[in-house]
Each structure stands twice: as structure tokens, then as C-alpha cells.
Design a protein around this nucleic acid. Structure first.
Lengths: 212, 212, 212, 212
DNA sequence: TATGAATGAGTCTTCATTCAT
DNA sequence: CATGAATGAAGACTCATTCAT
């Protein structure tokens, strides 16, 4: 019993190790440079061992993206269940999203800044797409609550959601990139986050909520 | 002298031919698909000939990106010289930037969504960095004019510039990505651009200018 | 005792199951497609389990071929025991041989059209060779009976046997190949078999037997 | 001029070297074992060099087979032009065919004893098929001449040609195999060839020609 | 100036096999 | 008895790059 447990745990660990190594490589050297060999070398296993854990390279990458989305969605779920007032809930979600990107830059990059392989059968991306849609839906619902409560003007929520997401995403991805780009005198992440949220708030809200 | 001239001219021509072929490949099929062999095939020269004009593949790609950025800067220069009212000038520049990304998605991606190869000597990216800085400076100046004119609250322009750029960049890069992502019911590019600019305007301007 | 018996029986059963699965794969998809993994998958055991029953892949294949040959020999025995007149017996054997090849094309190919791996220890092919010799002996005896009875001229039976076998083998192997070669307008197997036997008969018999 | 010539010659030589090595490997170790790597090792060149001479592995194999057939056809052409009497012409061709196989066992094996890859696009085999048909046509014409001259009974020449070819092929391939099969006490090649031709002659000819 | 020939490192992937459990 | 985990060798093939000519 103990043995079986240990084995399961070890297997999980190696699986996670592979995923971590792949993600890191991905960001350090670009999508083209992620190779089974390099991953294997990094974790000090034989290349073929990786195939015991993932069907092929694409499945591995897809799994990474999927799991990333799932963790993000879980976080957003939690925020949603905190029953905050509408505007607070909206910006709590936005802040969580940004922080998630900052905390998991590699995964964020892989999930959101990488052009998917167009040759792939579309069904292989399905899991990823679904996870992305779920995350977007959190944002949509938060925005809708604000509209219901009169804080945001009534409008097409599809366009609104996507537009807001794109701005959040711009901030998040740029803040991640900042660290790789020594040539530009970037401001601090905190300053940039606060300023961006301020602009967003100003642009979205027609009526300032009583507090926050 | 005539001979030397002709030689120089011919050399320039072949160099341009190589860059054109590479750009076309790059734009049509993305970075991974640009190979020295394919370029050579396209211009009907031997692969090794390309090395007479460019040190290596990376230099060639960087040169392409750099050149495209010169065009962006030139466009922004032009806008600046049109002597528009401050707010109009600001948003004319922003719109031009976004359109530039949409028109040159591969170059935009390579320049702004790709983490530079850390193994490469930093001087090889210098041209690109400088071009990026010049573009950012255009934005900063446009924002400063708005502040001077009282349309935007007085504040740290470094943070402001970068924050605004990040939002523009989020929109631009996401709009580019949209086309590769069939799974999400994306709104039209036009709607997204307009909505994002609306939010940005609302968030930035303390006082609406007499006419857009 | 009962336990030991059951164990032995179970072991035999699994061995048979492996061979059946391998044979099926082999017959359906050819030698190259037989892999330990696929066999294991088919019988729903782990690949490593197969090694408990067979030394290696080659042994397994050889065993299959050998077993098939036992069946050929058994068929030829049966023909011999039918006490037919000499010429009828000869051609009954020949027909049976040809039909055997047609019915078991992969085994036939592996046994007669594949150059044995020179790296392999020669004893691993011994079983196959012996089986082949036994089949040749059937032919020799049938020819000898025809010679005794005056249907075929007296001569070196070693040369005669081998020559006749080569012609039978040519027909058999070519008829098998036919199916893989869509480009040539091959005649029907039946026509080819009949014509070949006709020629063989004409070339062998000095005196036509009373019937058949 | 001399330089260009030498280069062309050298290129031809390496091409031939590759083909020879591949053919030899093919027969020594079986189709599955022919690998670009092994060929490269054999000729002491890098594997990638082979791709400068052949598009891919299949093209290489096909080319070998095609060239083999062409050489065989050329030999048969020559025999046809010698204007021999019908029966002599027929058996001269048959003997040449057999001798060709004995002289080029590797090529013969590759061309006639190997199951073509069924996954291949059919057009890639076209050259081979055409060459095969041309060789078969030689045999057909020789047989037709014999029929015209009354040496062979009038009949379906398609079936006859194929049947005769199958017998020749059986002899040829078996004589080649003989050398790899130490377990069987094979008769000499010469004896086997003579005996087989004798049987064939007896089975085919209704009327013995005046000489030979 | 331009190139043809060649290479070596790299790509993903499959497979037979071993060994500790 | 059976297996899960792991491996190393091998498979075809691509590519950036070099170098003698």
C-alpha cells in the first residue's frame, strides 16, 4: 500500500518535473527550441522516458497550457465565491489574473504569447480552448454584475469583455517581458500595475462606487 | 569607376532581393519556416551565397525587423508633423501603432512577443531595441503635450507612457493572435479597437476635448 | 499436484496466446509490423511478460514459422498416406505445397524469401531448415516413385528434386507477390497454377499416365 | 572543362557508390535493415550527404530497382537483335535472365524478392513497373515467335509468359538463396540450371527444333 | 562573386530489451 | 508470475553553416 502510494507519487513528480523543464525551456529559448532531447537532458532522463508520460511533444505542450488555465480558473472561482461588491469583485479578479501571470511567467507566456501550431488537428487544442473560455467567462460575469448594478454602461458584453482582457493581457505580458529586456528603463511592476488599473477603472466606471 | 558602381549597385540589389524573399517567407509562414535553403530557392541562388550578404540567419531576421520598425517610426514622425491638436495627435499615433501591428503581424510578433535568444550577443538586438525606444518616445511626447494642454492629469510620464503602451500592445498582439485561435468567438477587430480606445480615452482624459 | 498442473496449463495457454497474437499480426501486417509492444497490447499483457515465454523476437518469429511448417509437413504426410498412383501423388503434393504458400503468404515469405540474419546464431534457424528439408524429402520420394514406375526418366534425383522445387517455389512466391504489385496485368492465380503444372508435367513425364 | 568533367565523374561515382552500398546492405540484412545511416557508414560519408544524391530512402531504393531492370532490358534487347531462330532466341533470353540474376544477386533480390512498401504513393513505383513490363515483354515476344513458328502450341500468351517467367524466377532466386543456406545439400548451380531448362523445354515445345 | 559538396548537430519518434520490484 | 519504469540505440530526415574552388 505504502509502496503503491510512493510509486504514484514518484510518477506524479517526474511528470511535473518534465512539465516544468519544458515550460522553462520554452520561455528561455523559444518555441522552436523546445525539444524532447533538451527536456530530457535538463531532467537527466533519457528522451524516450518522456514518451512514457506524454504521447508526444504537442500533447506535452498542450497539457502545460491546459493545466495553467485550470489553475487560473480555480483562482478566479475562489474570488467569485468571496461575494464581494461588484466593482471590488471585478478588480479583485483582474488583479488576480495579473498576479498569476507575474507568478507563473513561463506558463503565462506559453499559454498566451505563443502562436499555436496551425498544422495540428483542431481537436487537440480543444481542452485548451475550453479552459481559456472558462477564464474569459469569469471576467464577463464580473463585468455583467457591474452593469446590472449600474457601475458600467449597458453595452455588448462580448466586446467589452474581450477588450478589457486584452488590456489586462497587455500589461501582464509586458511586465513579464520587461525582465528580459535590459535596454529600456522600465518602471516598477507595481507602478505599472497601479497605473493601468487606474486607467481601466477610469475608462470603465461611469459612477465611482462608494469605496475602493 | 563605372564598373565599380555597377558592382556596388548589383550587390545592393541582391541584398535587397534576399531580404525581400526572407520577409515574404517570414510574413507568409512565420519565423520557424524561414530557412536559408528556402530563401535561396526563392531567389534562385545557392544557400551559401546568402552568407556573403548576411552573417547568419539571426542577423538577417533582425535586419528585417529593424527595417520594419524604421517604417513605424517614420509613420509616427509623419503624424507628429501633422500639427494636430494634442488629443487628436495622441490617438492618431495610437491608431497608427495598432494598425501597424495588424498590417505586419509577423514582424510585430518577432519584435514584441518573442523573448530574445539569451545566447546571442546583445549587440545583435540593439538595433531593434533602439527602434522600440524611439517609438515609445513618440508616445511619451504625445502624452506630454496632452498634459501640458490640461487634458491629462500631471503625473510621472515614464509610468504613464509605459502603461498606455502596454494596453495598446495588449490590444495589438491579441488582435493578431485572434486569427490563429478559431475556438474562441472573437469580436471583430474594428469593434475591439474602438472599444479599447474608448476605455483608454475615458481613463486618460480628465476633460473631454472640444472635438475628437 | 492439481495446482502444479493448473499452473502448467495456464503457462501453455499464455504461450499459445502470444503466438496466436504474433501470428495474426504477422499475417495481417507482415514481418516489419510485428513488434513486442503490439503483441503485448493485443493480449493485454505487459511487453516484458513476453520475454518470460520467448528469448527474443527472432525466436518467437522462428517458432511461428517452424510451427507452420509442421503443418505443411503434416499435410504432405497425409497426401503420402493416401496411396495414390505415383503421378497423382506427385502432383497432389505439388498442389498442396503451392496452396500452402498461398494460404500462408507471410510465413512462406519469411521462410523462403528472406535471407537469414547472418548475425544470428545458426542454431536459431535450424528448426526451419529441418522443416524445409523434410518437405523437400516428400517431393523427392514422390519423384522417386514416378521414376520407379517409369513415368519419369531415371536420373540424379537430388538435382531433379531441387529443380522441380525451384519451379514450384517460383510459382508460389510470384503468386504471393502478385497481390502487392498492382502495376502489372497479372493473370489469375488459378490460370497461372494450371499452366505451370501443365508445363511441369510436360517437361517431367516421358509417358502420360492413364488418367489425370 | 577538365575540371567540370572530373566533378561530374566524381559525382557519378559517389552516386554509384551509394547505390552499391545500399544494394549490398539490402541483401545482407534485409529490407528492414537498410538504413541511411548504415549506408553512410559503409561509404564513409555523413548520412546527410546521401540526401544530396537521392530525395529520400524510397527514391533511392526505387532507383536501384529501376536501374537493375534497365540493365536487364538492355541485355535482352541485345539478344533480340541477334536474329536467332525462335527457340534459340527464347532460351538465349532465358539463360541471360538467369545469368543476370546470378551475376547481380543483390539487385535481383531487391527487384524481385522484396515486398514493396504498400504505403507508398503508387506513382513512385511507376518507373519500376514500366521497366518490369518491358522485361516481361521481351519474354512474351520470344514466346510468340515460337508459337508463330509452330514450336509451341497456340494459347493465351499472357498466361504463358507469366508462367514461364515464374519458373525462371524460381530457379534464379533459389540459386541465389542457395549460397546463404548452408543447411541443405544443394546441387551445383550449373546442374540446376540445365535441368530446369530441360524441363521447361520439354514442357513448352510440342516439336523439337532441328538443333539446340 | 558565387557555388557545389559536404558535414555535424539537431529534430521527433519507435522499439527491443532489462531490471528491480 | 508479471510488470512498470527506464533506457539506449536506432530510425528518417532538416538545417545552418563551412570551405575549397
Amino acid at each position: 500500500m505504502g509502496i503503491a502510494e510512493r510509486r504514484t507519487r514518484e510518477k506524479e513528480e517526474l511528470r511535473a518535473k518534465i512539465m516544468d523543464a519544458a515550460t522553462e525551456l520554452f520561455v528561455q529559448e523559444g518555441r522552436e527550441s523546445v525539444s524532447i532531447r533538451k527536456i530530457a537532458e535538463k531532467i537527466e532522463y533519457a528522451p524516450s522516458t518522456i514518451y512514457l508520460y506524454f504521447d508526444d511533444k504537442n500533447k506535452l505542450l498542450m497539457t502545460i497550457v491546459e493545466e495553467t488555465f485550470e489553475r487560473l480558473s480555480a483562482g478566479l472561482d475562489e474570488v467569485a465565491q468571496r461575494a464581494l461588491p461588484p466593482v471590488e469583485a471585478l478588480f479583485a479578479g483582474i488583479r488576480l489574473y495579473i498576479q498569476f501571470g507575474i507568478d507563473h511567467p513561463n506558463q503565462y507566456y506559453l499559454a498566451f504569447c505563443t502562436i499555436p501550431d496551425t498544422d495540428l488537428p483542431p481537436e487537440s487544442c480543444q481542452g485548451v480552448t475550453e479552459a481559456a473560455l472558462r477564464a474569459l467567462d469569469h471576467l464577463r460575469r464580473a463585468l455583467e454584475r457591474c452593469i446590472e448594478a449600474g457601475y458600467i454602461a449597458r453595452q455588448d458584453t462580448n466586446v467589452l469583455t474581450q477588450s478589457v482582457w486584452m488590456m489586462m493581457h497587455g500589461l501582464t505580458s509586458a511586465v513579464i517581458f520587461k525582465d528580459y529586456d535590459k535596454g529600456v528603463p522600465w518602471a516598477s511592476t507595481e507602478q505599472l500595475v497601479e497605473k493601468t488599473i487606474e486607467i481601466l477603472k477610469g475608462g470603465l466606471l461611469t459612477q465611482v462606487p462608494s469605496k475602493n
